[in-house]
Design a protein around this nucleic acid. Structure first.
Lengths: 179, 179
DNA sequence: CAACGCTGTGTACGCTCGTACGCATGGCAT
DNA sequence: ATGCCATGCGTACGAGCGTACACAGCGTTG
């Protein structure tokens, strides 16, 4: 294979890692899998990311940043008059209709943080950022955290059971917690 | 090693698997790790559980069953007059003071179910059983599911951030959702 | 009491993996 | 123009893994 000049190599490896993890789970992340997905030789991955944890952290940081940016966009685009419960319900519905693999990855990220210290700050930042975002609507930080908790719990339930999305039930739950 | 007659072998392997998974995570589960933890030869684990998934499912079924039994005991021992929000808050507090590894395992079980089909029924049963339990208090199934969602979301947040348990905030959240 | 079959044991094969390392190459600073 | 060093590439090593399998011992059934 001819040597290829590739100044974006590092970023492309991160993207490939996200693809691998999104499609096959964090457990399937390996230097080799990423190398194959990015179509680069094995040695290249170990050059840019000496250990597998480095690669995992870089990938999850990007996933998390994109997720938070998404939430910020959502908050900005939601009129202040819309009741929070309604907005949250619509958000859950939109997410479930979208890329489920991405949601699964998000929650895999959560649980990975439980066991792997280097991942903890990423999740902590996500939780803080999201709560800070919702404070604009709830006015109270504890309440915002409660909304995040309900949001995560409901999404997990819906993903796990595959139960059809019940707008009324979800909205009722959010109404109680945001009321 | 002399042959040992051991009619409880299978159960002891399951217990060993739970120990391994609890201490080092589901990713660390292997025939060899379980064999070492149970102090039996490798061949024995493959005899009782032909594939690793069989072993994982058996272990997680037991974990889940114990968990549900715990919840049932808790519900039975909580006087009907105690407001649900107060009871839930006390439960969360008790759990956080207890064995955190066990909680981590519980949520690892959740996320594992997202990717591994054989584990899904276990989690689905847990969710159904827990909601059925709480219906006795809420009277309404959707509301019960909402309580479970908030419960899981809050526990995850507290485990992940390591933030100190804030009884007032947790209770306020449950009070809102339990109306 | 015999033989069948369930249970227990040790070993081996083939695979994937993380990681290390030596060499090649060419962009860029000088 | 040139030389340096960041980057790219291929390979190799040792470890851990799932799984298969042949053989050994003993409880049970007839």
């Amino acid at each position: 294979m001819p040597r290829r000049y590739d100044p974006e190599r590092r970023q492309r490896l991160i993207d490939a890692a996200i693809t691998v993890v999104g499609e096959r789970g964090i457990g399937a992340l390996s230097h080799r899998a990423v190398a194959a997905a990015a179509d680069v030789p094995l040695g290249s991955t170990t050059y840019h990311f000496a250990t597998l944890d480095d690669l995992l952290v870089a990938a999850l940081e990007q996933v998390s940043a994109e997720w938070v940016a998404d939430m910020e966009r959502w908050e900005r685009d939601t009129a202040a008059e819309v009741p929070l419960a309604e907005a949250m319900t619509a958000l859950v519905e939109r997410l479930l209709e979208g890329d489920r693999k991405r949601l699964e990855l998000e929650y895999e990220l959560y649980v990975t943080a439980l066991r792997r210290a280097p991942v903890r700050p990423i999740v902590a930042a996500y939780l803080d950022d999201t709560a800070a975002l919702l404070v604009r609507r709830t006015g109270d930080l504890s309440a915002a955290r409660g909304v995040v908790a309900l949001f995560d719990g409901l999404l997990l339930q819906l993903l796990l059971t595959g139960r059809p999305f019940d707008r009324a039930a979800v909205r009722a739950a959010f109404e109680r917690v945001t009321g």
